[in-house]
Design a protein around this nucleic acid. Structure first.
Length: 671
DNA sequence: ATTAGTGGTGTTTTT
DNA sequence: CACCACTAAT
């Protein structure tokens, strides 16, 4: 974003604050940590860190909530914060809320003591800071003459209130948003903020942007037709002056691997017609779907780049390494301490950890300091001494050293590398650890360049004593911008990403994959109407990323959670007008596939089944209607079939009881 | 007392 | 399939 802006503007962008809400709040909190009542070295928690603290709270306080999962509690905490609510502001209306809120309260006190800040807290803290500190608020109201907010439909209630605090008579605000592209409802985004904005900020004139400069006719018509099915929207109709262009190609494949192969063939064809690889993108609904695509691309020797997914900084080996780094910097960091106290295994088990915990409570000191008081006998005592000594040594060895050197020293001396050397699938992990050294070196170079370029803002942090300041900002960077690091060098490669990650981007050619009921729209979103509408907006976002060529595909069968599932095509496909589509129903391919799988059953299956039903056949049930057979089991009176019904989902039925009729037309297809 | 191995469970999207 | 909690083996 920063780059795009500086390329478009005749003036320098130095001095502008450009970033996400989270990024800007982090910057503010770093500058005013004292006023925000935070330790100087506060660390940012990611989703997993948050979960492990919640688990800790549940265990330590023996809260009796067997039925409530840590994830549910996490959701409660995050959505409370997204709405600007502290635990004491929540009505404990029922037992559930009471339990969950208790965890929230204790969780927050742990974070406060240990100097930990989760994503919601970044914004909430800054909000409270502005609210309670008039001088500071006025300073920033004058500092930022113009506030510009992009993707306004993705703001949540707290971010909205945050903006209201920052806007005064001395500055002005400008917002751009598209309610049809609101796809972050699950994390508290309110597209209603768009209409509230008009009211609360006295907007005198609204500009509707309906001319689209990106996509050609067929693509745009499809997008318009799709989104019209949503009831809850402000309403707009996009138009283009760039001609009809090509129809959308729709491909039906027998399996996910066939789908991937067809896409690879098409990409090769495009390449030979002078399409650039970096102008092509493949989208999918969930990260897990990237695998078969990657396999096919790898085999075909096509360079590709996966965005997001298992983020580099979220891998366990990287998190272990970072925990060592954090603990060097901040011995108070209990989460990091617990992560590595016995990793790699060094003979300090749960019992020892419990003792350390007790001592830290009695002596009111950190877990780390408690190590020196813990008197245990024999092996454990020796292990604990060794662990303390390791850290004393690490602190001395890494003082005033380069980031790369610090990281290298830590991953070697901690025993992480040698641990993974003995692990049978530890090779990749060691590669990643080496990559972390590189990332550190790169980060330091970039930081120097940035520093020499802008010595801007009047308020600046006082320089740090002792430990390297760049280690500090590196750790910060690691938790907040986890995904970005790998994305930079996306040159000359095909781009793979989730539809969520694709928002705001555009490509000449887009392959949109996995258009199947249950996947897209995702089955977990179908429970309520608003969920389905959000999925449809997601589809709308995906379609409108394509400039010239859009390819949509789906597979008849797909491995999900280790089981083959037979899906029907997505309802979203049916919502696109036929005139905008050219169907490449690979019928021959699909028939041969089904024949093949039936033959396989006859040859490999120990005995031929004594009924006429088999996987892949279309059947009709008196009550459930049409469906496709997923698998068969058993013989005679015990024979059962699993069927995915068009309108009733997946069910197991006993053949003797279920009156099933084979769909004759489909039967003819097979033979 | 620790660890490795086993069996049961739940699976979207992200700052 | 991947992760966790629990159990058996060291």
């Amino acid at each position: 974003m920063s780059l795009r802006i500086s390329n478009m503007l005749p003036v320098s962008t130095r001095g502008m604050w450009i970033g996400t809400f989270h990024g800007i709040c982090n910057r503010l909190l770093r500058l005013h940590f004292k006023d925000a009542n935070l330790p100087k070295s506060f660390q940012i928690l990611d989703s997993n860190d948050q979960i492990s603290i919640i688990k800790r709270v549940i265990k330590l306080n023996k809260i009796d909530i067997e039925k409530i999962s840590p994830k549910q509690i996490q959701y409660h905490i995050n959505s409370a914060k997204d709405n600007g609510l502290r635990s004491n502001q929540i009505d404990e209306v029922d037992e559930f809320t009471q339990h969950v809120n208790k965890v929230y309260r204790i969780y927050q006190s742990i974070c406060d003591v240990e100097g930990l800040v989760d994503f919601g807290e970044l914004i909430l803290r800054t909000y409270e800071l502005f609210k309670n500190n008039n001088a500071l608020r006025e300073h920033y109201q004058n500092r930022f003459k113009y506030l510009l907010v992009d993707e306004f439909q993705d703001t949540n209630q707290l971010q909205y209130n945050w903006l209201r605090l920052l806007v005064s008579k001395s500055n002005s605000i400008f917002a751009v948003g598209d309610d049809d592209q609101s796809i972050y409802g699950f994390r508290g985004a309110r597209s209603d903020n768009l209409s509230d904005f008009k009211r609360d900020f006295n907007v005198s004139n609204t500009v509707k942007l309906e001319q689209n400069y990106r996509s050609q006719g067929h693509i745009l018509e499809a997008a318009n037709a799709l989104i019209k099915n949503n009831v809850n929207r402000l309403g707009k109709d996009l138009w283009t002056s760039s001609g009809q262009g090509e129809q959308i190609k729709v491909l039906e494949a027998p399996s996910e691997s066939e789908e991937a192969n067809s896409i690879v063939r098409e990409i090769k064809r495009l390449e030979s017609h002078d399409h650039k690889l970096e102008d092509i993108a493949i989208f999918y609904r969930s990260n897990a779907q990237s695998r078969p695509l990657e396999q096919a691309l790898f085999r075909a020797g096509i360079a590709y780049k996966v965005y997001g997914g298992l983020r580099f900084f979220e891998r366990q080996e990287i998190k272990h390494a970072l925990a060592y780094l954090r603990l060097i910097l901040n011995p108070q960091d209990h989460s990091s301490f617990l992560r590595i106290i016995n990793f790699p295994p060094r003979g300090i088990g749960s019992k020892s950890i419990e003792k350390i915990n007790k001592i830290s409570e009695i002596k009111k000191c950190s877990l780390f300091e408690a190590l020196s008081f813990t008197d245990l006998s024999g092996k454990a005592a020796a292990s604990i001494k060794a662990f303390s000594a390791l850290f004393d040594k690490l602190r001395v060895d890494t003082e005033q050293k380069s980031l790369a050197f610090i990281i290298e020293t830590v991953i070697n001396d901690s025993g992480l590398v040698s641990h993974y050397e003995n692990d049978k699938d530890g090779f990749d992990r060691i590669e990643n650890l080496k990559e972390l050294i590189n990332a550190g070196a790169m980060f330091e170079i970039e930081e120097e360049q940035a520093l020499s370029k802008d010595e801007l803002d009047p308020i600046s942090t006082e320089s740090d004593s002792g430990q390297s300041n760049s280690l500090f900002s590196f750790l910060d960077h690691a938790s907040l911008e986890a995904g970005e690091t790998q994305a930079v060098d996306g040159a000359k490669a095909l781009q793979l990403m989730t539809v969520h990650a694709a928002k705001g981007l555009e490509f000449q050619t887009v392959f949109l994959t996995g258009l199947e009921e249950g996947l897209f729209p995702h089955e977990n979103s179908l429970a309520d109407f608003s969920g389905l509408e959000e999925e449809r907006r997601l589809m709308y976002v995906a379609v409108t990323r394509a400039k010239k060529n859009l390819n949509i595909s789906f597979a008849q069968s797909r491995m999900i959670h280790g089981q083959t599932r037979w899906n029907i095509s997505s309802r979203f496909l049916d919502e696109i007008p036929q005139k905008n589509i050219s169907r490449k129903t690979d019928h021959q391919l699909s028939q041969s596939h089904i024949n093949h799988s039936i033959k396989n059953q006859i040859i490999h299956g120990s005995k031929k089944s004594d009924h006429q039903f088999s996987a892949g056949k279309i059947v009709e049930h008196q009550k459930f209607g049409m469906g496709i057979i997923l698998q068969c089991e058993g013989q005679g009176p015990e024979a059962r079939v699993q069927i995915n019904f068009e309108n009733h989902g997946v069910k197991w039925l006993i053949l003797n009881f279920a009156k099933l009729t084979l769909d004759a037309s489909h039967d003819k297809n097979i033979n």
